[in-house]
Computed example of a mutant assay.
Amino acid sequence: MSTVSHALTDSATMLRRNLKRMVRYPSMTLQLIGMPIVFLLLFVYVFGGTLGAGLGGVSGGRAEYVNYVTPAIILMTITAAVQGTTISIAMDMTEGIVDRFRTMAIARVSVLTGHVIGSLIQTMLSIAAVIGVALLIGFRPSAGPGDWLALIGVLVMMAFAFIWLSVAFGLASKTVESSSNVGMPLLLLPFLGSGFVPTDSMPTVLRWFAEYQPFTPLIETLRGLLMGTPVGNNAVIAVGWCVVIALGGYLWSKKLFNRESTR
């Protein structure tokens, strides 16, 4: 068996291991899906009437706001779902299972690959659930077939980037408890961007930060694809940020994993 086929076989085995763990311990998956849905319902039904009226538009109110806020909730779904990857990685590293894997004749790359692909599947299922709830409460995207295909590609790219970052967070965490908090800024940044209110409504300093932080072009790209509005240069900036985050997360993860291997 060649090195590549050996790595692919071992990665598939590790992927099955992670998928089985998701099935056997569904509480984490339900929590990671439930939190964005709670935020969606909270902002639409509690704040949507007021915030939606400020957006203008034909319908106004909640009907206008659910279309505006859903892209931000989708991005929050990605950052929430990959938080589970951070915890899973930290559990494997602290409980000794990775040390056992290293004594076996398996490809080392498969240990992290199984987590990444498993988390990607979990994240896309979470996004589908959130979009389904959004449609039930009034979300009405105007995207065409081409826009939906582009949206799926963008979501996979975003999820892949943040998953690798979460892998690095898990490897860097000393305990499982600390790993659950290290990704918290990823959940807060959408609030400091264009996710919930337009950046034009913010004070000057905060508006400058909101316009140049990475989550704003990511959200605006999703919003443009879903609502059929011009994306402008946000798509290029979003791709650039995803490449930087994915590459940085991968290189950091590789360095941390290799350092653990030499101990």
Rank of each mutant, 00 (worst) to 15 (best):
G170R: 00
A246C: 03
A105P: 15
V58S: 11
A80D: 04
I37C: 14
M76P: 00
G224E: 03
L136W: 01
G228Q: 04
W164M: 11
I73Q: 06
D147R: 00
A72C: 08
R223S: 00
L40P: 05
L256W: 03
R102H: 09
S2H: 02
F43C: 11
W148C: 10
V69C: 01
F191E: 11
F139C: 01
L189K: 07
N233D: 08
F162N: 11
R100T: 14
N181M: 14
R259F: 08
T123Y: 00
S179V: 08
E177L: 13
W208H: 07
S194V: 03
Q213K: 12
E64Q: 11
F209S: 07
H6F: 08
V58C: 00
F101N: 00
R108L: 03
A150T: 06
L40W: 10
R16L: 13
L136P: 12
I137T: 02
V23R: 03
V109E: 14
S88Y: 04
T29C: 03
L187Q: 08
I152E: 05
V109K: 09
L218T: 04
L112M: 10
K254M: 12
I106C: 01
E64K: 09
V176N: 10
S119N: 02
L19S: 13
V243T: 00
V156K: 08
G193H: 15
S88H: 13
P190M: 04
M227I: 05
I97Y: 01
G232D: 09
I121K: 04
S142Y: 05
V109Q: 15
L15R: 07
V38F: 12
V130K: 01
V244F: 01
G61V: 10
L136H: 11
Y65R: 10
L19I: 12
F196H: 11
V58H: 11
A134Y: 05
